[in-house]
């Protein structure tokens, strides 16, 4: 019985783009790894199996392996997605994996999204600006409408995986474009009554073609977002606000 099951399992090929910046003399290449598919196998399991049994030098990033931390964004047959929650059963017999474009390459499938996100956060000030006032922690918290809190959370579900940037036409061409992720963050803080920044302040941050007017409305961001955030709506909404201010 066991043998029967084993013999009916599919063998899949993963073609992985390889490059190790610490060995610049070795040219970038595709390596193909074959492995037997297991029940419920994800790309997280498959890549770890390859590293443990075939090539221990293979670089990739996983942290939560549950689709919530955003570490494992990569191009899966050309499309940005989270590898940890991609079941191999949904993939063809040969699958090509490549690192996300735009971000600095660390090695193989690992890219430095952290550096990019940090720069974006510093530039846009992705925190509550309240004039430096410290809350008195002994007192009751400021009330907030329940709906306002839920609306903010809708936009805060972003996990900074970088898929929207990898899927963005403008980001490929314009190095300092803040992307859907940056614009979504601005929308999130603009919605937050605790943030004292005015629309004019936000205009200063995103009111040009490195911000909201750089978007070409190709909607790759929204298609690629693993959290299904309403990115296109946010960009359209911000544009309307910002256009009103620019005159």
């Amino acid at each position: 019985m066991t043998e029967l099951i084993a013999s009916t399992r599919r063998v899949i090929d993963l073609r992985v783009l390889r490059y190790n910046p610490a060995e610049p003399d070795v040219r970038a290449r595709f390596d193909t790894f074959s492995l037997e598919e297991a029940d419920g196998m994800t790309l997280f399991m498959a890549l770890n199996e390859i590293r443990e049994t075939q090539d221990p030098s293979l670089q990739f990033d996983f942290v939560c392996r549950a689709g919530i931390c955003g570490s494992c964004g990569m191009l899966i047959n050309g499309k940005p997605g989270l590898a940890c929650r991609t079941l191999t059963a949904t993939l063809p017999a040969v699958t090509t994996l490549a690192p996300l474009p735009v971000f600095e390459l660390i090695g193989d499938l690992s890219v430095n999204t952290g550096k990019w996100m940090q720069a974006m956060s510093e530039r846009l000030g992705t925190w509550i600006h309240n004039g430096g006032e410290e809350a008195n922690l002994d007192h009751l918290e400021q009330p907030m409408e329940p709906e306002a809190a839920s609306d903010i959370y809708e936009l805060e579900r972003c996990i900074e995986c970088g898929c929207c940037i990898a899927a963005c036409g403008t980001a490929q061409m314009r190095e300092n474009f803040v992307g859907a992720i940056g614009l979504n963050k601005i929308a999130r803080f603009q919605l937050d009554p605790r943030d004292q920044r005015s629309n004019a302040d936000f205009y200063e941050l995103i009111g040009d073609d490195t911000g909201v007017f750089g978007c070409m409305t190709l909607l790759g961001c929204e298609d690629a977002c693993p959290k299904e955030l309403p990115l296109a709506t946010q960009i359209a909404w911000l544009r309307r606000r910002m256009a009103g201010l620019s005159g």
Binding site: D61, V63, C64, A66, I68, C69, G70, S71, T113, G114, M117, Q118, I159, E160
Partner: peptide
Amino acid sequence: VPPKRSHSAA
């Protein structure tokens, strides 16, 4: 890892 990827997020 980038701090926002820490296990606290889970």
